[in-house]
């Protein structure tokens, strides 16, 4: 499996490697972290990210300002819409899958998001215990 991927990766990088006089193509051992360079066509991803972000921003604003949801649902709805928009921008604006070799930024970022969610979530949770401090 891994051998097959290495061959595939070398095949993909080889023309560039030859042109630049590089001796080695980039080895890739983990298929899920296979890099992918974005094409130079019409910047459709950027336009999608922009339109999607504007739409999500206006939607969240409309829901809150017009009270379009029951009060207890407003806070989760706003946070979910923010998380979705963050993923849209991460996927469309940031060249997440570009790298030489494996795209190590993806597992590292995932870990950072887990830590961030833990810090925010557990801080919020522990402050709901109002017995000690207020």
């Amino acid at each position: 499996m891994s051998q097959q991927i290495v061959t595939h990766a070398s095949a993909a990088v080889e023309p560039a490697a030859h042109a630049s006089g590089m001796e080695h193509a980039d080895p890739v051992e983990i298929a899920a972290l296979m890099p992918h360079f974005e094409a130079v066509g019409f910047p459709a991803k950027q336009v999608f990210g922009f339109v999607g972000s504007v739409a999500l921003t206006l939607l969240a604003l409309w829901v809150v300002s017009q009270h379009r949801l029951p009060a207890p649902l407003l806070l989760p709805a706003v946070l979910v819409s923010a998380a979705v928009q963050a993923l849209v921008q991460l996927g469309s604006f940031m060249h997440l899958r570009e790298a030489r070799g494996e795209t190590w930024q993806i597992p590292v970022l995932a870990l950072a998001f887990v830590i961030a969610a833990g810090i925010v979530g557990f801080s919020f949770w522990i402050m709901t215990f109002k017995s000690g401090v207020s």
């Binding site: 950072a112 961030a116 810090i119 801080s123």
Partner: peptide, 17 residues
């Protein structure tokens, strides 16, 4: 950037609290 995510998460935690 991953470390900056953690930095901002601490500030968001303070604000949430």
């Amino acid at each position: 950037l991953a470390s900056d995510v953690v930095l901002f998460s601490c500030l968001f935690a303070v604000y949430a609290s």
